[in-house]
Write a protein that binds this DNA or RNA. Structure first.
Lengths: 182, 182
DNA sequence: ATATTATAATAACAACTGTTATTATGTTTT
DNA sequence: AAAACATAATAACAGTTGTTATTATAATAT
C-alpha cells in the first residue's frame, strides 16, 4: 500500500560526500544537499535524524575514500615512507576539501590522525616494517619524524605555500629519510 | 553641532580581534561584534564598508600580534631554528584560532606563509644567519626543511594530535636540525 | 532656546540555516 | 475502483547572516 521509495540513504550520502568533496563540508546544508540529490529536503530528514548525522556519515565515507586513494597510489619508491608521503601530499593537493575535513578538523571525535592514516590496511605499519628491513634502528621514531615532515608539506600544500613538483618532492622526502636515519 | 563619537574604529577592531582570538574568525559577525563592542551594529558600518574589511583589519592585527608574541618569546636555545620552532608551536597551542586564521587559511590574499613568519623583524633571516655562523652549508635548504618540520608539528598541535612537552619538543627540534645538518 | 547635524539605536529587508507541519502523490491491498 | 499509507513536495517556523532605512539622541552654532 505504500508509495515506492525513490530516494535512498545511499543517494543522500553519495550527494553529501560529493558536495563535501567539491565545495567543502560547510556547503553540506539541507537545501544544497537536496538540490544535489535532486529532491526536496524531506527525504534527508526521513533517512537521517539531523544534518550532524549526515556529516558523520560523510566523514566515514571520506575515510574509506582515502583508504582507496592510498591503495591505488603507485608505490614506485624504495625508500620507506616516501610513497606514504607522496600519496598524502597528492591527496592534499587533489582533495583539498576532504583533506581539511579529515586531517585539519579538531572535532574529529575520537579518531586520531594516526588511525586515519593507518587505515584498515595498516598503511603505517607496512612502512614501519619496511624501515625495519632497511636497517632502521628506531622505526617508531623514524615514523614520527617522517610523519611530521610529511604532514607539514601537505598542510602547506592546501594553503598554496608548497607547490614543488613530484621530482623535487621525492628528493625532499628521500633526503629527510636519509637525514633521520643517519 | 554634531553628536560626539562614542565608538571609535579602534574599539571595533579591538573587539573584532578579541572575538577572532577567543571564538574564531567565523564568529566575527556583525551582531556578535556589536555585542562585544557594547554597541549596536550601526557604528560598525559607519567605520567599515562591510564585514570583509573588518576581517582584513583583524588579519593585519593578528600579524602584528604574532610579531609581538615572537619577539617576547624567550630565545633560550642555541641551535638555530629551535627557538623559532618553539615559539611557533607555542603560538599554535595558545592561540589556536589565530593560528588557523593566519597559517591555515587559503584566502590569505597575497601574504605568503614566509612573510607571516618572517614578520617585520626578519625572524627567518636571523635564524638563517645563525645557521650560517653555525657552519651550515645550505642555510636556505636547512630553513626549508626545518620549516616544514616545524609547521607539521604546529598543525598537529591545533588538532590535538601533538602534545609533547617542551623538553621533548626541544629534543625533537634539535635532533631534526642535527639530522638535516649531518 | 532653537535649529543643525553627526552619531547611534531600533527596525526592517532579503537571504540563508536546520527542522517540522501540511499537503499531495503514488503504489498496493482490498 | 476505493481505501490505506509510506513517501515526497511545498510551506512554514524560528533563528541566523549582512546590510540598510528610519528614528532618536546629543552636542554645538546660532
Amino acid at each position: 500500500m505504500p508509495r515506492k521509495e525513490t530516494i535512498t540513504k545511499s543517494d543522500i550520502l553519495k550527494a553529501a560526500f560529493e558536495l563535501a568533496r567539491e565545495e567543502g563540508m560547510e556547503e553540506v546544508t539541507a537545501r544544497h544537499l537536496a538540490t544535489k540529490a535532486g529532491c526536496s529536503t524531506q527525504p534527508i530528514f526521513r533517512l537521517y535524524k539531523n544534518m550532524e548525522e549526515v556529516l558523520a556519515d560523510v566523514m566515514t565515507e571520506a575515510i574509506s575514500f582515502f583508504d582507496s586513494f592510498y591503495a591505488a597510489y603507485p608505490k614506485s619508491q624504495a625508500t620507506p615512507f616516501v610513497n606514504l608521503g607522496l600519496a598524502y601530499i597528492s591527496f592534499a593537493e587533489k582533495e583539498k576539501n576532504l583533506f581539511r575535513m579529515m586531517f585539519l578538523n579538531d572535532k574529529r571525535e575520537g579518531i586520531s590522525l594516526y588511525e586515519l592514516l593507518n587505515g584498515k590496511n595498516g598503511n603505517v605499519l607496512v612502512e614501519i616494517n619496511r624501515a625495519k628491513e632497511d636497517g632502521c634502528k628506531d622505526p617508531q621514531g623514524m615514523f614520527m619524524k617522517m610523519w611530521i615532515f610529511i604532514h607539514g608539506m601537505a598542510c602547506m600544500t592546501i594553503t598554496g605555500d608548497y607547490d614543488l613538483g613530484i621530482t623535487e618532492t621525492v628528493q625532499l622526502l628521500k633526503e629527510a629519510y636519509q637525514s633521520f636515519a643517519g
